[in-house]
Nucleic acid binder design. Structure first.
Lengths: 190, 190
DNA sequence: AAAATTAATGAATAAATATTCATTTAAAAG
DNA sequence: CTTTTAAATGAATATTTATTCATTAATTTT
């Protein structure tokens, strides 16, 4: 029995992300993915039942990877503001370093590929973020508003800024990043 | 000579927006657009050379419509903070009321349809926003940071919040909107 | 070393989608 | 009212894209 080549799935993922970044989810074909991944089109169908499954699988992979990263260097014993900054930085760095993944995930949200089940599963990944912000509210450090509102406020500015600097072909300096966090904090704090 | 039916283009636009919201840009076909717009597929090709042109045309239409709305009720004589709030509200209300347009525009940005020319043209529409924020900086009312950074901070939180509430099937109450602006302002102000 | 098993291939096929065009319909001009 | 002109239609065609499958190539097992 010939074993499967474990690298292939990663190659396919990488190729798909590259193409989606380049042409958008709407413009990506199985043929192109195969070509970019240096395998035959037929081989794609050994690893994935069909296109929908390929996209869903990559989507889930990206979502899990991101959730894992968000809480790096964080534990609940850290003082709130410092903990928030840690996670804020993790979020920012993820969006910068894995821009293509973040973009892919965004695109998938409004596509015919992602199934309702896949969509539901991703929600659960973000409950820890939720708890963090609730803690800040309890300590009266952040505004006493709907937690979701606070989180979207935080995430929104990160996403938009990363997107913009990416397309402008710039880098965010350490200084700028500090300024960004200051703005976020000033917006959240009581 | 039979004249063109002026309503048809609007019908096609409306149909396209509806379908894109429902299935994403990736999943929309000319046949479906025609059906949804209650015209024959062939008729589409009287009004638009091809699919790319249809999408680009709608994209431009949406962009112009949005730019027109942003500066409603605003003139440069209004005190900065009040002027900013006016525009902030315009932005928010546009994203809420024309959610499908905003979504379509977002999706288009990463698609094979939008041409570089179309992309360039949209940039110009937002110079007034730029000037506004510069004015706030000069008056030392907002932080002395890169104007783009301030603008993306502002726009990002709006976009993300509207997206989230839309998918959660909620409405933003007057009170919540006030809270949102307060957060935005606290983030921006010196 | 031969047999068995499954991965890998890519041309062939199926399916979906964009686009065309011969025909019909409706409005305007004469 | 007739003729002219262009819109409108939707079935037919062209094109693109997903998927299959007969064949070949690698491994492992015996």
């Amino acid at each position: 029995m010939k074993p499967r080549d474990d690298k292939k799935i990663q190659q396919v993922y990488k190729a798909t992300l590259k193409l989606v970044k380049l042409k958008g989810l709407a413009g990506v074909t199985m043929g192109e993915i195969a070509k970019e991944a240096d395998i035959a089109t037929g081989t794609l169908y050994i690893y994935f039942k069909n296109k929908t499954e390929l996209i869903n699988s990559l989507f889930t992979s990206c979502r899990n990877a991101s959730a894992a990263v968000y809480f790096k260097n964080y534990d609940t014993s850290i003082p709130f503001k410092k903990g928030l900054k840690t996670i804020w930085l993790n979020l920012l760095n993820y969006r910068i370093k894995k821009f293509d993944e973040a973009l892919f995930v965004d695109q998938c949200y409004h596509s015919p590929f992602i199934t309702e089940t896949t969509r539901e599963m991703t929600k659960k990944l973000f409950t820890p973020l939720f708890s963090l912000m609730e803690a800040g509210k309890k300590q009266r450090l952040v505004k006493n508003e709907d937690t979701i509102l606070l989180l979207t406020f935080m995430a929104g500015s990160i996403n938009e800024t990363v997107k913009h600097t990416h397309y402008a072909g710039r880098k965010l300096s350490k200084e700028t990043i500090e300024q960004m966090f200051q703005m976020c904090w000033d917006g959240l704090k009581r």
